[in-house]
Design a protein around this nucleic acid. Structure first.
Lengths: 340, 340
DNA sequence: AATAGTATTGCAAACGTTTTCATAAACTGC
DNA sequence: GCAGTTTATGAAAACGTTTGCAATACTATT
């Protein structure tokens, strides 16, 4: 029927119940074609009866893959990463891998600690967000010879295989859109770029693009806010408080843009007539805000799925070749941007 | 200095380098007080030099804890669960545990598969969302004697230790608020309650509360939408299309409420003057929408943190006693609800 | 200086698998 | 029937730890 006495149902208990050797049981799981159908049936019955569950730890110890992949993200609680995590998780699950997840709160030393923790668990691979990591982290994964990859950023000369998008390009596209609409007095709300190469690349590309158009953004048009709707809203309120106000706000990502939009609405400003708001990211939900958020689409789900698929392929391949994928960006023009 | 030849730096390599026995090395990690400071120093130097990283799989196999906890959620890509996951992850990380995460997309059979997968990895505990699970899942964890807990729901007579809130109470509070404001024609937008006891409890409590006030909600005032802003928006548009429209919308959670709000705005309705919108959950961001969303606060972060803390305590305790915590709900009245 | 106790270390068995090698049995084709 | 294959199984070593037990070295007590 079911539940046998103790909890120690192992492969030899199954073997005994099926009157075969442990080796045969193991083979039934790993190379079913090598064991006769009759024996297989006997064994499966025993497995059922005893409620046997394979012990991955033991397999791992033997040198087989652990069938786990570690993913270290800055934060889970964040529209954009949640979406990649979901997609990545689904993709590797499809290949039989389990996801070990940790977050470091944008602290590269904690990132190192998390990677280390995962290596203790002998993950088959470590995936990180972005391409900026501490020396120690790089050394660790190199030395350990554990497959590693970067998600979210793409760069030709990246030290790690990566699947992501070009954040500089994203910054350029966002700025270009506002320039095309004739805006010349543009406010910027970006997060702290320390340890966040995504934000840094976007910001520098934005500034370069504007400069190329002859625009230098004065200090009082630059504001810093973390990826929080509430704090971005406050930052926007401040930016829009002065006697003169910008005609457009370019935001580090859609969360900030959403906050900025609420801030503008609170100030009673008509968007996009009196103020344009431009985001970057195109998060789930950005399309549904009223008015719909203009932004640069970074295909989070695609990136997550692709990353998971490529990484598992890389890990399971006998002849692994490095990979790198650059996902296309897209200007999404909705209702928050209009002519200056 | 660093990187030794192969990748096979194990405890005996360290032992050799430090000229002690493997047992002593092991003890240095697990019972440092049992080994002399001098020896410890020698060993630590060897560890540094060789870049040794403990092998959890081997420890696990020996019968020690795996130091992993499996968390199975309906979906990651979602405001509300992202928040609990984050809090739970942080809480167990603080106790040295790693998080194995999987999602099942509201499919209880897939949930079973995920739990099984985790048991193969010999997680020290399995945490599930909600109290509704398949028979097979229950049997599995019972038989395996793996600690298990439920997050998000609370019920006195729960089969599992749980940390969460009373979703019926949440439904009652939401309905009560609208009744107090004098609403009698109330539209409902809820997700499919199949395999989702949170939603089911909320909905039934809402209906009971309304009925107790003499109100029966006609079929054409009930709408179904998944937890998606876009689809909820559509559902709201439909509900508000008829010749007569409800004076209030009560939504299954804040994501739906957000969609409903956008739908109302799109219809050109003034909220809360012409239509009240009530949510449940108080997700991150609900406070910042314009106008701020009225809702019933379910303290996701608190729940996650508490759940993580209680669970690890339970797992590591020599004399584990079952636990259960009911987190308080709170009516949060913001700008989307007003008198009928 | 002998004894008892304590602190430190090593030996070896155990944990649950997988896999190499060897063996036995069952087929080939003549 | 017989050598040569092929197929199915088992025995045993290996993976990297932890820990109970035994052995040794040191300390304090008389």
């Amino acid at each position: 029927m079911s539940a046998k006495q103790k909890g120690n149902v192992d492969i030899v208990a199954v073997a005994k119940a099926a009157k075969v050797s442990p080796s045969t049981v193991s083979r039934t799981f790993n190379h079913p074609d090598l064991v006769s159908p009759a024996t297989r049936k006997k064994i499966n019955r025993a497995v059922q009866k005893l409620g046997y569950i394979r012990n991955r730890a033991a397999q791992t110890m033997h040198g087989k893959r652990s069938a786990t992949i570690g993913l270290v993200v800055p934060t889970i609680n964040h529209a954009i990463f949640a979406e990649v995590i979901q997609a990545f998780s689904d993709a590797i699950d499809k290949e039989g891998f389990s996801l070990l997840l940790a977050s470091h709160g944008y602290d590269l030393d904690r990132e190192y600690a998390m990677v280390r923790k995962f290596l203790e668990h002998r993950v088959d691979g470590v995936a990180l967000i972005g391409l900026e990591h501490s020396q120690a982290t790089a050394r660790l994964i190199a030395q350990q010879e554990t497959p590693a990859m970067a998600i979210w950023n793409y760069a030709q000369d990246a030290a790690l295989p990566c699947v992501g998008a070009d954040n500089r390009q994203a910054g350029r596209m966002a700025a270009a859109h506002l320039l095309e609409l004739g805006h010349r007095d543009i406010g910027l709300i970006f997060p702290d770029t320390q340890g966040n190469d995504r934000a840094r690349h976007r910001l520098s590309a934005v500034l370069e693009t504007l400069e190329a158009a002859g625009i230098t953004v004065p200090q009082d048009r630059k504001s810093e806010a973390p990826y929080s709707v509430a704090q971005a809203k406050q930052a926007a309120l401040d930016l829009l408080a002065g006697p003169s106000r910008p005609t457009a706000l370019l935001c580090g990502n859609d969360v900030i843009a959403q906050g900025a939009l609420y801030g503008a609405q609170k100030r009673g400003l008509k968007v996009p007539e009196e103020l344009s708001v431009m985001g970057i990211g195109d998060f789930k939900g950005s399309a549904d805000i009223e008015p719909g958020l203009s932004t640069v689409r970074i295909p989070a789900e695609t990136i997550g799925t692709l990353a998971g698929a490529e990484f598992t392929r890389f890990i399971t391949s006998d002849t692994p070749e490095p990979f790198s994928l650059c996902c296309d960006l897209e200007q999404i023009i909705r209702g928050t941007t209009g002519p200056a």
